[in-house]
Nucleic acid binder design. Structure first.
Lengths: 116, 116
DNA sequence: TCGGTTGTTCAGGAGTTTAGAACTATCGAA
DNA sequence: TTCGATAGTTCTAAACTCCTGAACAACCGA
């Protein structure tokens, strides 16, 4: 099985990050990871996305987040340990991730309020 | 010719905005528009993107920005007057646009410095 | 009315994304 | 050691999106 690729922080691009986060499933995963205080397995994170998404798709989403430099994944035996690279990315592009995650929260909050 | 469609601010989505701005050509156009103090024609804005992009593609990029709610376009005779919807979007998602445009600037600045 | 300018639409090919099926890798139990 | 279960990945074909050249529409001035 191929080793996992993680780009260096200097190779990150804003377009890559935006593209990765321009998907509700991926931000949901990333937001959870960013607020978690310990590494999360893929199956744990599958809980935060709408049910019914096949695991092959989830695997691709994780790869997309990895390639964008947003998360770091480590194989530990049969499972995967994922952590966010928030701090690193924030050093390179200060405030970007917070603004995006914040905007998604604002959007979710609004639709929740108007739903009833 | 079809009338131009502009979504209401309440219909904007973060994923739509990120997708629209996850493209160097489109942010370049948007950034210029956001910092301009008067409406810009499409051909004026064509100056800020790398030369050689066909006008059909530019037209699509403008449409993408319009559909995402980031710009407003008005036909004035034979030309088009574009303005950014920055203020409106910012009211809905405070700080988002500034963070994205800022990050692109940081990226451009860095590559310029390391280029020589 | 004609020619030039500005931008849109259409249609195709190229590229990307999705998801089911088959696969690899690891662990624990028998 | 072998087997079965678990956790993710890879493959592949269909669906979808994006890009762009060519044709088009709208307007203006001569």
């Amino acid at each position: 099985m191929k080793p996992l690729f993680h780009p260096s922080i200097d190779d990150l691009t804003v377009e890559g990050i935006l593209h990765a986060l321009a998907d509700p499933v991926r931000v949901a995963i990333f937001a959870r990871l960013a607020s978690a205080d310990c590494a999360q397995r893929c199956t744990d994170l599958a809980g935060v996305v709408p049910a019914g998404i096949p695991k092959s798709s989830l695997s691709q989403h994780f790869k997309a987040l990895r390639d964008a430099g947003l998360i770091r994944s480590e194989r530990r035996g049969v499972e995967m340990h994922n952590t966010s690279r928030c701090a690193e990315v924030d050093r390179r592009f200060p405030g970007l991730l917070a603004a995006i995650v914040g905007a998604y929260k604002a959007q979710a909050g609004k639709s929740k309020k108007s739903r009833r």
